[in-house]
C-alpha cells in the first residue's frame, strides 16, 4: 500500500464523551504543528488518551471532526483513510499487542501486511531499536509471557519501526525503568533530528521526567478543553 503524505492535521470542535450529559472533551479545536513534538498533559481521566485516539482516527467523536489534509475523517471509508493512516503509528497505553503472535510478529505485522517491510532498512532499524531497548531475548515470546514494560517497549518499537510521518504515543513512559526511559527519549530526539519539517510526534503523558528536556509544545487538557501549558497549570497536571 502506498503511503500518502500528511500535510495538515487539525481537530475542529471536537466533543466526545461516554454520556451526552458529561462529555470528556468539549469543543476542542487545534491545529497540530508539524516539525514539532506536541505533548498533551492533564490529570488522570482528563481525556488525553481519548483525544489521541480521536486524532489517530480510532474513535469517531460525537461532535466535530478531525481533518487530515483538510479532508474530514467522518466522510472517509477505512480504505480511503488507509494510505494516510499508514503514514501514522500509535503506541497504546497497554501496548495493544496481539496476544496470539510473538513480539517480533507484533512488530512486523503492520508493515508485512501492507507490503511496506523493506528488508535492509527495516531490519537494520529493528535491530537498533531492539538493542537500545534491550528486548532481544524476548522477541520469540508471546505477550502473555513477558512483563508489562516489555509489552510497552514492543508497542513503542512497533510504532517507530514503520518510520511514520506522525507518531501518537499514549503514556509511553508508563511502567518503564530509567534506562528504558533514556532509550525512549533518545529515540524521540533522534526521530526529530532525522526527520524533516513535516513530521510530528504527539505524546499524551504527564510524566515530567520524560517531557523535561524535550523540545516540545505542551498543552493541558482541563475540564474537557485544551489550553497551552504554563507554570500555573503544572499543579493541576500533577
Amino acid at each position: 500500500m502506498r503511503r500518502e503524505r500528511i500535510r495538515s492535521l487539525r481537530a475542529e470542535n471536537l466533543t466526545h464523551g461516554f454520556t451526552s450529559e458529561a462529555p470528556v472533551l468539549r469543543e476542542i479545536t487545534m491545529d497540530l504543528p508539524f516539525g514539532k513534538e506536541v505533548v498533551l498533559q492533564g490529570a488522570p481521566g482528563s481525556g488525553k488518551s481519548l483525544f489521541l485516539k480521536i486524532l489517530a482516527g480510532l474513535i469517531t467523536p460525537n461532535k466535530g471532526d478531525v481533518f487530515y489534509n483538510e479532508q474530514p475523517l467522518k466522510e472517509m471509508t477505512f480504505e480511503e483513510f488507509a494510505p494516510l493512516r499508514t503514514s501514522t503509528s500509535v503506541c497504546f497505553e497497554n501496548g495493544g499487542l496481539l496476544m496470539n503472535k510473538t513480539l517480533l510478529e507484533n512488530i512486523q505485522i503492520g508493515l508485512l501486511y501492507n507490503h511496506q517491510w523493506r528488508r535492509e532498512r527495516s531490519d537494520g532499524l529493528l535491530k537498533s531499536l531492539v538493542t537500545d531497548f534491550g528486548i532481544e531475548k524476548y522477541l520469540s515470546m508471546r505477550p502473555a509471557s513477558v512483563s508489562s514494560s516489555v509489552k510497552k517497549i514492543t508497542g513503542i518499537i512497533r510504532s517507530l519501526v514503520s518510520t511514520p510521518q506522525v507518531i501518537f504515543l499514549d503514556d509511553p513512559s508508563l511502567g518503564l525503568g530509567e534506562n528504558e526511559k533514556k532509550a525512549l527519549k533518545y529515540w524521540i530526539e533522534k526521530y526529530r533530528q532525522d526527520g524533516k519539517e513535516d513530521e510530528l510526534i504527539v505524546i499524551a503523558s504527564s510524566d515530567e521526567s520524560l517531557v523535561r528536556g524535550l523540545n516540545c509544545i505542551r498543552y493541558v487538557i482541563e475540564d474537557g478543553r485544551i489550553i497551552p501549558w504554563s507554570e500555573s497549570t503544572r499543579s493541576q497536571v500533577a
Partner: peptide, 13 residues
C-alpha cells in the same frame, strides 16, 4: 486489550 484498535492503527481492516 486494544488489539482491534492496534490493527486499525496499522491500516489492517
Amino acid at each position: 486489550n486494544s488489539e482491534i484498535e492496534a490493527l486499525e492503527s496499522m491500516g489492517i481492516d
